[in-house]
Structures are given as C-alpha cells and as structure tokens.
Amino acid sequence: MACFLVSAAEAVVVTVAASRFEKKEKARETAPAACEGLSAETTAKIPFSRKLKWLRNLLWGGVALLAFEHVWHGEVVPWFPFLTAASDPADAAEMLHEMGTVGVAMALLVTVVWLGMLGVAALAEKRALPSLPEQD
C-alpha cells in the first residue's frame, strides 16, 4: 500500500548524510596539513561518503521502482491525499500496519545487504594495503 515510504524516509536521511560526509571529506582533502600527512593508508581507503552513496542508490532505486508499482496498482494517485488507502480510516490502519511490517523489513534488508557490502569493501581495503609501496 505504501511500504516504500519507509525506505524513502531512510533514503532522504542517507542522502543528507552522504552530502555532509562528502563536504567534510573534501574540506579535509583541501586542507594543506592533511595533504602533508597523506599516507598509503588514506589513499587505499574508500571514502565513507562513497559507501553511503551505495546505500543511497540502493534505496532510491528501490523506492522509484516500487513507487511505480504502486501507481500501476492504483495505490498511489497524483491527487490529494496521494495514497488511496489514506482516504478511508480502515484502509489507513491497514496501510500503517503494512508500513510497520513490510516497509520496515524492506529498509532493514537493504541496510543489512549494504552492511555486507561494507564488510567486503573493508576486506578489499585490507588486502590493498600491503600491496602499496611503503613511504619513506
């Protein structure tokens, strides 16, 4: 009914967080003191903002296609209140229940898969480190 809204809310939070982390990382990169201390370790690490963008793309992609599915089934309409279930109290209660079960499970599964991706990325970073030439 509107299960994708839970993931959409998470996607908004992740998008804001990713842009904030990106700004911080760029500021750190441009700072002269940081450039002097640039080591092999920092160059082999994937920036956290990039990792957050993986989650952002997973969430927004899923939300876009699921929103389309809801339009297809007539559950989302282009006029107020936009969700057909929201106009009837009984349907609204069912919709909220679905958001609390299916919606939350969707957001959780996507986040768990992303955490798995972070684990794989951390392993790849560890493997990349010894192959880098040592600095004087």
Binding site: C3, L58, G61, G62, L65, L66, A105, L109
Partner: peptide, 16 residues
C-alpha cells in the same frame, strides 16, 4: 544498485 535495491524490496514483498 537501483535494480538490486528494487529486487531486495520485492523479495521482502514476496516473502510476506
């Protein structure tokens, strides 16, 4: 990532 995100969400839908 877009397709995998949608696949994961539809997988949850399918499980329910």
């Amino acid at each position: 990532l877009m397709y995998w995100g949608a696949s994961l969400m539809w997988l949850v839908d399918a499980i329910f």
